[in-house]
Each structure stands twice: as C-alpha cells, then as structure tokens.
Design a protein around this nucleic acid. Structure first.
Lengths: 233, 233
DNA sequence: CGCGCCCCGTTTACAAGGTAAACATGTTTA
DNA sequence: TAAACATGTTTACCTTGTAAACGGGGCGCG
C-alpha cells in the first residue's frame, strides 16, 4: 500500500522539502536526517539524492522555502496607505515575517547558520530596501541599514541566553540554595543581582520573565528610532 | 618522546580547552573533533572524557573561555573618565569585545548556537548593565536593552549573507553572464539592481564591498542612538 | 616493604549518520 | 522491440561521538 502511494505521488524536490519541514516542525533541526526525511516519505534515504545534492543542499533549500512562505505572507498584506511612511510599512513587514517564523521555530537557527542568499531572500530584501528608499533614505544608508538589521529584518533576533530546557520542578527550587546564590551573586555580580531582584518583583506583569514578542518589538523600535535620526532632510 | 612530554604535562581541563581553541583557530568550528583535539595533545580521544563530559560540554566551555578572554581585555582598559558617559563607555567595551572575537572567528557562531550562560558571560553582562545604570537608565530599560543588543553586546552581529568562499577568479566573471544577470535582476529585483549598481560605483572607497568593522559600528551607533532616546530625564 | 586502590589514559567496540557505487525496475524513445 | 533513461533500492564505507572494559603506575596504609 505504501507502494501504491509511491506510484501515485512520485518524489520530487518539493515533496522532499515539504517532508523535511514537517520533520523539523516535529523534531527540531537535529531531527532532520536523510533517513528520517526518507522514512516520512516511505522511501529509502538514498532516494533523496536524486532530488537534492546532499544534506547541505536540502538545508539550504529549506531556508528558501521558509522565506518564500514569508514573501507570500507579505504579498497578502494590503497595500501600504502611505508609501512614504517607511516606518509603518517596514514594521508591518517585519512583524509579518516574524509571525511566519513563529510557525517554524527551527528556522531562525537554520537561517543564521546558512549564509546563502537565494532568490527568495533576495526578493524579500528587494522590497525591504524599496520601502526604505520610498521613505527617502539614500542608497548608502539603506545598504548600511540592511547590515545593521541583520536577522531582525526577517523578524527574529538571536537570543544569547535561551533556556532550552527550563524544567525547574517546583520542589527543586531549593529556597536555601537560592538564597545562597543570591548572596554570592550580590557580591560578584552586584548589578545582575539588583536586576534579578527587580525583575522578580514585577514578574507578574508579564508572562514569564521575558516576553519574546515584547522584547523583539522593543529592539525593533530602538533600531527604527536610530535609523530615523539618519534620515537627512 | 611523545610519552615523555605526556608525562611532563598531565592533561587537564584547561589544556583540553586550549587545544580545542587552537584547532578551531586553525580549522574552524567543524574542525573540532574529539579525535582532532586529542591528536593535538598527543593523546587518544577517550582521554578527553576524563576532563570534559562530552563534546557538548567542551563546546560550551569554549564559550566561557573566549568570554573570559574578553573580560580580561576589558579589565585591562583604563578606568572610564566619566562614569556617567554610558555611551562612550559602552561603545569602548563592545569594541574591545569585538577585537577579541576577531582573533577567534569561529566564536560568534559558537556563542550563537550555545545558549548557555556561564559565569564569564554573567560577569560581562553585569558590567555591561552597570554602565547603563550609571548612565541613568532604569532597570526595566536596561533589561530590554540587553535583549535588544543581543550578540551585538559581545561585539558581533550575525551576518545574514556571508560569502564563506567568495573565490571568484578574475577569468570567471563572465562579462556576458554578468550583464544578463543584471538585466534579469533589474526586472525582478529593481531595488537591489539599483543598489548593486550604486555600490559597484563607489566600491573603491572601501576595501571589498562591505567593511565589516564599519558596518558593525554603524549598527552599533544606530542602536545607541535609539537607546539614548529612551533615557528619561 | 609490599599490597591494594585509584587516577588516568588506552583499547575495543558500537551506533548514528552522510554518501558513493552498483544495481533493479519501470518508462520512454528511437 | 531494443536501447537509453529515470528513479528508487541495496550494500557498503567512512567519520564521529561515546560506552565499557582494561592496564599500569604512583601513593597511602598496614
């Protein structure tokens, strides 16, 4: 019966990519394995090599797949009311990209580690730059801005400190140890100690310690403010 | 004779880390292999496991090693003239960190991919935050700023588009093909086409297309400007 | 002094994963 | 219909991380 399905749907690059995306969505980036992707397709690992030249090629192509999705989402946006309002237009585009990425949590890491610039990425940046140009920035400034944004242009910012597996069961936050930590910290890390205390006091206002979306928008707006200052008039 | 040297210098965590750094400096991150590191030490791979709990542990610890180096460099800096001049002080610290990272080109990728927060990193951010605090920022704003800076706080910004192996020999920039590309690009990517042309015209001013250091400082200053605006008075 | 224990590196072995090469089978073309 | 081709399978190999058992030398304790 798997055979019947195989006959029905012959393999092709698109199906391989789609399967890889599915695997990544389920098991994360490390879950992507020639064999795991092949399994999902009911096929042997070596079969994939007819359609991708190797794992690297597959991974690179996944970046393009995701960015293509982003482009689609951006295309679906209503046309900007005021083309000269670069700030609103850029912000909207970036947050749209972010929304798409949130459905593929593994994508940021992939994008960061694969410095390839395919057609989809180019198109994204073409329109990105066009928005800035419409806002009155010079080509030079735009060029710098593209570098300055970095991954933020695509809607994510690499977090230096990601918990990965927080998993602190209630019972194991040992009060005593925590206090000892605090005391030690206050000595060697006076500032962080102050901040930790401050944050724990108002922790109730936000969900968890740091709301990713909030942090992202804060950083984005800082960037936009800084850029605005460079708009010569 | 290797034996003699082994007897002379018994293995320990520090030497393992140092060897790993050396390998990475030479062959890049992917060059770090239990066996390659062991080889460099004149030892078998499994010997490393007495001092490191696994490759992951080794890699994590390398982050700390590098950041410790950064901290040393920052400690060697003369004391700030004006503690309230957060902008100058922060800028100096960040650029010092960057200078250190430039000697370990592999470090940024490592740091980005290992979301661990060891003592060295904590110390770095402790002083980082302290500078902002001395400048008059609220704890909340500082917290946001730390997120907003992200890797830039350590002196690097993830480049979305890294050439990796530029390697365009003079003979193979086929004039004809290049023009065809340009034409095709002007159609589908009008903005990038404009920018490419503009940049190629003034390419002589900077070395190569994009000067990393310049780009970095531009982004940094944009960020600082944006932050300055959030300094409530 | 000698015996046993432990520190530390070695040997051996295996599993996971990428991929080359030969092969089989069905489809298309001459 | 036979040859060429496309597509997936089988086998096999290599690299790399790591578990487990081993060995030997130095040090403390009887």
């Amino acid at each position: 019966m798997t055979e019947t399905q195989n006959r029905r749907r012959p393999l092709n690059r698109g199906r391989v990519q789609a399967a890889a995306v599915q695997v990544a969505d389920r098991d994360g980036l490390k879950g992507i394995t020639m064999r795991s992707v092949a399994d999902l397709l009911g096929v042997e690992a070596m079969a994939l090599y007819r359609h991708v030249s190797g794992k690297n090629d597959l991974l690179d192509s996944l970046v393009e797949v995701v960015v293509a999705e982003i482009n689609d989402a951006c295309d679906a946006l209503p046309a900007p009311e005021d083309p000269a309002d670069w700030r609103t237009n850029l912000r909207r585009r970036i947050l749209t990209a972010r929304a798409t990425l949130l459905e593929h949590r593994w994508a940021p890491a992939l994008i960061s580690s694969h410095g390839t610039m395919g057609p989809a990425l180019m198109r994204y940046f073409d329109e990105f730059g066009a928005i800035l140009a419409a806002g009155g920035f010079t080509l030079d400034t735009i060029h710098h801005a593209l570098h300055a944004f970095g991954p933020r242009a695509l809607g994510f910012s690499p977090e230096l400190f990601e918990p990965e597996a927080p998993a602190v069961t209630e019972t194991d936050l040992d009060e005593e140890a925590a206090l000892a930590d605090m005391a030690a910290m206050a000595e060697t890390l006076p500032f962080l100690a102050r901040m930790a205390e401050h944050l724990s006091h108002e922790a109730s206002t936000t969900l968890g310690w740091c709301d990713d979306q909030d942090e992202f928008e804060f950083g984005l707006d800082v960037m936009l403010d800084g850029l605005e200052k460079r708009l010569e008039r």
